[in-house]
């Protein structure tokens, strides 16, 4: 319960649209040709202690399948209210997801980690496809995923 409350408190702090304390960030996730249907993706952030900090994006429209994004689901408790307005369509094999956000400056170079969970129908769930520390230096550097995600890049 404590975890859930903390998550809710943090959410509002992650993205600060138009604020001087935030910077526009583009997140790009390119999927590999894994030979399956469209993938559901969860992009979320954990704090330096590994605690869930908040969700940036959910790709995939049908909430009944969100439990398969198991890392995110477990961390966030699958709270639907929290992801209102930050969901989009699932991403097909070989396709690219690109989202732009105003991310709070405090998230960078402070030990926060960006996670990507992936799930594909009838194939194994892949929590923590990607786990990459958010640093200024790491921007523009593609990070390889484990199974469904070919690369993830964040850039300012």
């Amino acid at each position: 319960m404590k975890l859930l409350l903390a998550a809710l408190a943090m959410t509002t702090a992650l993205t600060l649209p138009g604020s001087a304390m935030a910077r526009p960030v583009t997140l790009t996730a390119t999927l590999s040709n894994y030979g399956g249907d469209g993938a559901y993706l969860a992009l979320y952030v954990t704090d330096p202690q590994g605690e869930y900090a908040g969700t940036l994006w959910i790709a995939g429209g049908k909430s009944k399948y969100y439990e398969h994004l198991s890392g995110w689901y477990r961390a966030s408790g699958g709270n639907r209210a929290e992801i209102d307005g930050i969901t989009g369509a699932s991403v097909g094999a070989g396709r690219t997801l690109e989202i732009s956000l105003d991310l709070a400056d405090v998230l960078f170079d402070a030990g926060y980690t960006l996670h990507v969970d992936a799930a594909v129908e009838d194939m194994r769930d892949s929590p923590n496809e990607v786990a990459v520390p958010l640093t200024s230096a790491g921007a523009q550097t593609p990070v390889r995923g484990r199974r469904y995600v070919s690369t993830v890049t964040y850039s300012f």
Binding site: M1, L4, K62, S63, K64, E67, R74, G77, G78
Partner: peptide, 17 residues
Amino acid sequence: ASTFDLLPDAAASSIAR
């Protein structure tokens, strides 16, 4: 109807508690 979330048949979960 189930796929489009038109039915209240989502899995009951008590994991958050």
